[in-house]
């Protein structure tokens, strides 16, 4: 049997190591993120507490996109969320975007319930939104209402 050369072993190591790094980079950038085959929508929330970049956007429990950026809209003092929606998914102008939590300690995600109007295109805004539900606010609301 031919003895494995030093160069071969080192080369193998470098290939395995570099492909590990490439794999991690792909995981990071997200497989769906390749080729940017989606369109951008925005939505203003009264409160987006707990929502992070990369959070999932769902319709009926199916992932259709992710949060691209969250910033403060200085005019309205509201949270401006930009979402990247997979192409081929239609969202109508009367859809409602609401921030929800998966499980007790689970992540925040945006749930979109579709309506029946005209489809939105790149750069449009989902007007109707529901903010993050905070338990403290709920409790205080009931206490003051009764």
């Amino acid at each position: 049997m031919k003895k494995v050369s030093l160069e071969f072993v080192v080369g193998l190591f470098l290939i395995v190591g570099l492909s590990a790094i490439v794999y991690l980079s792909v995981v990071v950038s997200g497989i769906s993120g390749f080729g940017s085959d989606g369109y951008q929508l925005s939505a203003k929330f009264e409160n987006s507490s707990g929502l992070k970049r990369g959070a999932v956007i769902e319709i009926a429990g199916v992932k259709i996109g992710q949060v691209e950026s969250i910033e403060l809209d200085s005019e309205t003092q509201e949270s401006m969320v930009w979402m990247s929606i997979d192409s081929g998914v239609e969202i109508q102008d009367d859809a409602v975007a609401s921030i929800r939590t998966a499980g007790i300690i689970g992540d925040k995600f945006i749930k979109v319930s579709t309506g029946g109007g005209d489809p939105l295109v790149d750069g449009d805004e989902i007007i109707e939104t529901e903010p993050s539900i905070s338990i403290e606010e709920l409790v205080s609301k009931y206490m003051f209402d009764t």
Binding site: L24, S25, V27, V28, S29, I31, A55, Q66
Partner: peptide, 15 residues
């Protein structure tokens, strides 16, 4: 999917 959603460049850079 959960892994892909939650890991960003910051984490990898830190590693």
């Amino acid at each position: 999917q959960n892994l892909i959603d939650k890991i960003g460049w910051e984490e990898l850079r830190m590693s």
